[in-house]
């Protein structure tokens, strides 16, 4: 059973976001890393780039497949987790911790309200497993 921390918000594209003030920290969920398999490559944007909500900001690759990653909220990138370049496998081992991907200054923090909470996301992933 996939791990779904209570204190995060989730998208249907399997990203999570942790909100602190107007900055959101974003990564992919345990369910997503498990579906992908061994992550061997992570491509991330540069600090200062701007994205709209639901826009693709990078990609995660396993041996077998490429998966785009989408930001659940719009804004400007303020920090990127450079360590994933050399240690992409952290996405498998610590998806909610060390393998955070970007920090984004949200242009409209209200967008978080339209995301799923932990219980809703868990229900959503059960549907995906069918």
């Amino acid at each position: 059973m996939a791990n779904v921390p209570e204190d995060l918000h989730y998208s249907k594209d399997h990203e999570w976001i942790r909100v602190e003030g107007d900055v959101g920290t974003i990564g992919i969920t345990d369910f997503a890393q498990n579906s992908l398999g061994d992550v061997v490559y992570v491509e991330l944007p540069k600090v200062g780039e701007k994205f709209e909500a639901h826009e693709s900001f990078g990609s995660v690759e396993s041996v077998k497949a490429v998966s785009e990653i989408f930001t659940p909220v719009g804004g400007e990138i303020v920090e990127v987790n450079e360590s994933l370049q050399d240690e992409p496998e952290k996405v498998n081992t610590d998806p909610y911790g060390d393998a955070w991907m970007i920090r984004i200054r949200m242009s409209n923090p209200g967008e978080v309200d339209s995301l799923l909470n932990a219980a809703e996301y868990e229900d959503f992933t059960k549907g995906e497993e069918e």
Binding site: G37, D38, S62, V63, K64
Partner: peptide, 22 residues
């Protein structure tokens, strides 16, 4: 993890993962 491979229901990987299997 089962996938459709040319019309066959086959395992694409087991829990150890592709890298370890390889």
């Amino acid at each position: 993890r089962m996938v459709d491979f040319g019309g066959w229901d086959m395992p694409v990987q087991y829990p150890a993962g592709t890298v370890e299997e390889h």
